[in-house]
Amino acid sequence: MQTGDYSDFKTDLLDQVAELRAHIRSGTHTGTTSGKAQSLVQGNVVILPADWANDFLLFCQNNPVACPLIGVSQTGDPMLPGLGRDLDIRTDIPEYQIFRNGERAETATDIRDVWRNDFVTFVLGCSFSFEDALVRAGLSIRNVEQGQNVSMYRSNIATQSAGRFHGDMVVSMRPFKAADAIRAIQITTRLPKAHGAPVHIGDPALIGINDIHIPDFGDAVTIGRDEIPVFWACGVTPQVALENARPQIAITHVPGKMLLTERLNEELAVL
């Protein structure tokens, strides 16, 4: 791609994400962001009071596959200029989950009324970013095909605790035929900030999943008889850690409803 063509390509993408973010901010788009804003990085979000931030930062550093950190705000600042122009974390996620003492207390499409001056926002990489790379390589993504949220499960894969944060990993699943599964591994390995290579392939019972047709988060998708379930670490993992740590208040995205950034996926790739 020539320099001028690349510039035009990115401008078009930024215009698209700005339009979609406007719909999110107005509350007219509250659904999943899977398959949206292709080629741009999507992010999981965790918002915590500042006196919990150091523990959570260490949890991310201890678990870079499940919690690949791509952005941290200044205390009390809802803007994230490194990830997008005019990006306001209080309004720019399709749906928020508000935790109170570790319980999923309520959801909202706007958190301006609960925002605090001591909040710190963490943005973590998301597997929706690598879905774009898989599609561009000619692979079929079942949840995108079916217009569904991705299937996500609580596993028995332990994370490394940090301070008050601990818990098992959440994984996302996409089914592939064997040859396509190998290709998917090769592609996602280059994208560590989008969870990188899978953490498990095949029998879900081996990682503590009793019924693959009943995900803990997201939607069930069709799995063909000739397909293998492939599991990646998932950015919902911190939500399990929040349940265990029980801060008085914490805010996340609702699983599958991500923050759309203005960073290109390829900017975070390992060449």
Rank of each mutant, 00 (worst) to 15 (best):
T32D: 01
A105C: 05
I212Q: 10
L87V: 00
T159E: 08
L40D: 08
K257C: 03
G167W: 09
V45M: 10
S129C: 08
R112N: 08
G196C: 00
Q42A: 05
R104F: 06
S161H: 13
V135M: 14
V120T: 15
T121Y: 01
I201K: 12
T33F: 01
A50M: 08
P215Q: 14
A18P: 00
F165I: 09
I47G: 12
N149T: 13
G138R: 11
T3Q: 08
T261Y: 05
S34K: 08
G138D: 09
M79C: 02
R21S: 01
K257V: 02
H253E: 11
V230R: 06
S34H: 06
Q2P: 13
L268W: 06
L80P: 08
A158K: 12
G27A: 00
G102W: 04
D77L: 03
L268K: 07
S129T: 14
Q38D: 14
T237W: 01
P81K: 06
C126K: 09
L124E: 09
L83I: 08
T237C: 11
R174A: 05
Q148E: 08
S73Q: 04
I228W: 07
I223G: 04
A220D: 10
K193F: 03
V120Q: 14
W52K: 10
Q74L: 01
M258R: 00
T159K: 14
S161W: 02
V72L: 13
D118Q: 12
C67N: 08
L48R: 12
S161Q: 13
I207K: 03
L264H: 07
V170A: 09
I111M: 13
D77Q: 04
T75N: 09
F9Y: 11
N117F: 03
T11R: 02
